[in-house]
């Protein structure tokens, strides 16, 4: 699948992410296996693996106020690199091709990588009718942090129209008690046409939340 810079063009995509609470004294692998069993019972077929990773860079103090740049990759858009610059209240994103990673290495004088906060979500990817479900276990520095479930309903491009349907699907999969809330970013983009960068923003929001959680459980 080669998409290159064409990722800027909106795609038929829609995502909803849910943070799945890992029950006490159960490992993440156990939950992933449980959900895999459930989704296979619904008639899904596994279509490979997926990986979303995020690395954050801090600008050098000499350049004025410290700014953070997040670099994210998504295996759904393998030829693209997503970068989001946090500057106060506004976030600026740039979608570039693979060479952007090398550029960041060149810029290491000005932007230093926070290696210990490299975080990723990876796991199996399933297709079920028009849905694409990804069960990701989130790890930061090889430490297990939690589970993110991504559900994509491919026929629809508007989050607002399909929200009820996605919630119904997710609650059917995870149980009716699991709260399904749109992230802050998605809230503001409910009536827009969904693009791959919206997925990235949602992941970043969840990743940032995980980073703030101090207590780590090793599995």
């Amino acid at each position: 699948m080669k998409r290159g810079k064409a990722t800027i063009i909106c795609e038929v995509k829609n995502g909803s992410y849910s943070q799945y609470p890992v029950p006490e004294n159960k490992t993440g692998t156990y939950v992933i296996e449980l959900l895999t069993k459930r989704i296979l019972a619904l008639g899904a077929s596994q279509q490979g693996q997926f990986l979303v990773d995020c690395e954050s860079y801090l600008s050098h103090p000499q350049m004025g106020t410290t700014k953070t740049v997040h670099i994210l990759h998504n295996s759904e858009q393998p030829a693209s690199v997503f970068s989001i610059l946090e500057s106060g209240t506004k976030n600026i994103h740039v979608i570039a091709d693979g060479l952007f990673d090398l550029l960041m290495m060149k810029l290491s004088q000005h932007y230093t990588s926070k290696k210990q906060t490299k975080i990723e979500s990876k796991g199996p990817r399933f297709e079920l009718g028009d849905f694409c479900v990804k069960l990701g276990s989130v790890t930061m520095n090889q430490n297990f942090k939690g589970i993110l479930v991504e559900v994509e309903y491919r026929p629809c491009v508007m989050a607002n129209a399909v929200w009820g349907l996605l919630r119904e699907f997710l609650q059917g999969l995870l149980g009716p008690t699991v709260p399904v809330q749109p992230t802050q970013h998605l809230m503001s983009r409910m009536n827009e046409i969904y693009t791959p960068i919206d997925t990235i923003y949602q992941y970043l929001e969840h990743f940032s939340a995980y980073r703030k959680v101090t207590g780590m459980r090793n599995n």
Binding site: G129, D130, A161, V162, E168
Partner: peptide, 22 residues
Amino acid sequence: VNLFSDPCKKCGCHLHHTSLLP
């Protein structure tokens, strides 16, 4: 126009339990 947003009039659900279609 409300293909994805309106639930079924009979069963009240968005997705049908076997076909998983709206």
